[in-house]
């Protein structure tokens, strides 16, 4: 019971706008819930309410066995938070930042210092420990911010879009760090705009739109619903379209889609890169020449298209469309 997150009927209004419209969440001890949605869906609002940074207009919430609205300071003692914008002080060094957080968690002078060094080592920041944070890269700031959230070894962790704005390499690094953390049994609520990220890290996913949950389930269930991955290919000469179609048909989950004027075909598959290799092997045997081939994983946009019949519309902010979801093997 120690490390659970429970919220029911959360409501938050900003004037006319309903940021949260009766959101229910439940994260059992030691599991990861991925809160998936576009910009402005209410993800950050939900995290800010659960972490006592924002007051809700309605609903109930309990974190680590403590009522969030009744006893916010007891909640703060038990949680770690890392937000979308790194909450670190630019003019302090990495060490000074973590030391300060440790002191404010009331670890005492000696333990705060020890813990700061320990975390800097663990997050590969030891070399930069005594440099002001303003000299850090975006990925380093995020790691430092995450380290700040872990100073007091919280039982419940909230991460609000931990990899938004990071380059693909830093994103993979962050995922490794998070996986290691999760292996230690931390309860985590993670928000993200990337289906792939939720897929990689979360036990359960809640898709949120306009402050409401529009779907929940495991990553597999969700992907089954949206149709999973697709192999997409372009043949070298149009005469081989039919041959390519019959090869694809042998691995395809449903009908193979053909776009004749583009010489393109696509088919839903399971098994990711393995399925792609199998397709390539069979095409090679059949003597089909290719101009382009790739594996396309479903994106948040695909999820939204399936669930709501509409594209994921960012209500605010940058409409960034990360293209690393498409793995080109051309």
């Amino acid at each position: 019971m120690e490390g659970t997150i429970r919220a029911s009927g959360l409501v938050k209004r900003y004037g006319e706008v309903l940021a949260l419209d009766g959101l229910d969440l439940e994260v059992p001890q030691g599991t990861v819930l991925g809160l998936l949605g576009p910009n402005g869906a209410g993800k950050t609002t939900a995290v800010r309410i659960l972490t006592t940074l924002l007051q809700a207009d309605g609903g109930r919430a309990e974190v680590a066995g403590v009522d969030v609205f009744e006893d916010p300071s007891a909640v703060r003692e038990r949680i770690g938070v890392s937000g979308q914008y790194a909450a670190v002080d630019e003019h302090l060094t990495g060490f000074e930042n973590l030391d300060m957080v440790g002191r404010l968690y009331r670890l005492g002078r000696r333990r705060a210092r020890l813990r700061a060094r320990e975390l800097l080592d663990r997050f590969d920041l030891a070399d930069a420990a005594d440099r002001p944070v303003k000299t850090y890269s975006g990925g380093m700031r995020r790691r430092l911010d995450l380290a700040g959230a872990l100073v007091a070894e919280p039982t419940v962790l909230f991460l609000d879009e931990p990899t938004t704005g990071l380059d693909p390499r830093s994103r993979l690094g962050m995922w490794d760090i998070l996986r290691e953390l999760l292996s230690q049994g931390t309860t985590l609520l993670l928000t993200t705009q990337y289906l792939e990220e939720a897929d990689q890290l979360a036990d359960e996913i809640v898709v949120i739109d306009h402050g409401r949950a529009i779907a929940r389930g495991t990553a597999d269930q969700l992907k089954a619903q949206v149709g999973g991955e697709r192999v997409e290919l372009v043949v070298r000469v149009p005469e081989q379209l039919d041959a390519a179609r019959s090869v694809l048909q042998t691995v395809s989950l449903g009908d193979v889609q053909v776009t004749p004027h583009a010489h393109a075909l696509s088919a839903g598959v399971t098994g990711g890169a393995d399925a792609l290799m199998e397709v390539l092997r069979r095409l090679d045997t059949a003597g089909v020449g290719l101009l382009d081939v790739g594996l396309r994983r479903p994106t948040l946009d695909d999820v939204f298209l399936t669930l709501t019949g509409q594209h994921a519309e960012p209500a605010t902010g940058d409409p960034q469309a990360p293209d690393e979801h498409t793995t080109e093997v051309a």
Binding site: T51, T52, G83, V88, D145
Partner: peptide
């Protein structure tokens, strides 16, 4: 700045 969120999320 973001630092205020850190302060406000701490049991200080």
């Amino acid at each position: 700045k973001g630092i205020i969120d850190r302060f406000r999320s701490l049991p200080m």
